[in-house]
């Protein structure tokens, strides 16, 4: 699925596959178990909000920059959120320099949808002068080490960074700095399908042999705000229902543990 010029050996595929049949994963996790998560916020003081996320071996930084800009003509009194993610060549031997490719754009767009569609940020409160000036919120995801499942790590980072972000009113003579108006805490949960089994939070090797991935982003009240199936293998209705249920449950756990408004 990636631009890989690294060959995944048949032997390695067999090894992971055979473990899976025994109900095991290489790192000893249960199929529905996440790797260790650590989130550190306010790591970049030039940003209005930031978070460093470790999800197992995956390591990334999310920075939120907020500055005034012109609203879209069809939403003159709403702020704007722009999410960007790049798979920079520092993070993996298979990432290349240059403009974002489809993988990176897909990741960024799914993170963006999760935040936007959940209504996590109250965009109407980001209006400065209707029709003229609104806050533009840039969420930039900087992946440092690809250990698999960048999607969930990036989503976690985006929300964690937003939760600590400040509107820089002072800098633009608009009064005191204020919190970004947050209404919800969407959490993305990604599952992969390998030989008919479903595993959450795939490691990099699991991700690369998986037939397909499904990301489900859900909100505080258990509603779904974004979904994305990625990869060529089809999924059955049963598999999808299973993933949706477990994703909502996992999202709740992760939210309660790491993301408090």
């Amino acid at each position: 699925m990636s631009l890989s010029n690294e060959v995944m050996t048949e032997l390695r595929k067999d090894y992971i596959y055979n473990l899976m049949v025994k109900g095991e994963r290489e790192d000893g996790r249960a199929f529905d178990q996440y790797r260790e998560i650590t989130i550190e916020t306010n790591v970049i003081n030039k940003a209005e909000g930031s978070a460093r996320v470790h999800l197992g071996d995956t390591d990334l930084v999310v920075g939120v920059k907020i500055q005034p800009g012109t609203p879209f003509p069809d939403t003159p009194d709403m702020g704007v959120i722009i999410t960007n993610l790049e798979l920079i060549p520092l993070a993996s031997p298979v990432f290349e320099a240059g403009p974002p490719r489809e993988d990176a754009i897909e990741l960024a767009r799914v993170v963006d949808r999760g935040v936007r569609e959940s209504g996590a940020v109250d965009l109407s409160k980001l209006c400065i002068t209707p029709g003229e000036k609104v806050w533009m919120v840039f969420i930039d995801v900087h992946v440092l080490d690809d250990g698999g499942n960048i999607m969930d790590a990036a989503s976690l980072g985006a929300v964690a960074a937003l939760l600590t972000s400040k509107l820089p009113n002072k800098r633009y003579d608009l009064g005191e700095d204020a919190n970004v108006p947050m209404r919800d805490v969407p959490v993305a949960v990604t599952a992969v399908e390998i030989g008919g089994s479903i595993m959450l939070d795939p490691s990099q090797d699991e991700e690369s042999i998986a037939g397909t991935k499904l990301t489900v982003t859900s909100n505080q009240n258990g509603a779904i705000s974004a979904m994305q199936k990625s990869g060529v293998h089809p999924l059955t209705t049963e598999q999808i229902n299973y993933i949706v249920d477990i994703a909502i449950e996992k999202a709740k756990e992760i939210r309660e543990k790491f993301l408090v408004i």
Partner: peptide
């Protein structure tokens, strides 16, 4: 630290079957 995940009797039976199937 890490309890053995493998049950001894599983080793010979299940995986062998699987290898064949594969």
């Amino acid at each position: 630290k890490e309890p053995e995940k493998e049950e001894p009797e599983k080793i010979e039976t299940a995986p062998a079957e699987q290898e064949e199937k594969q």
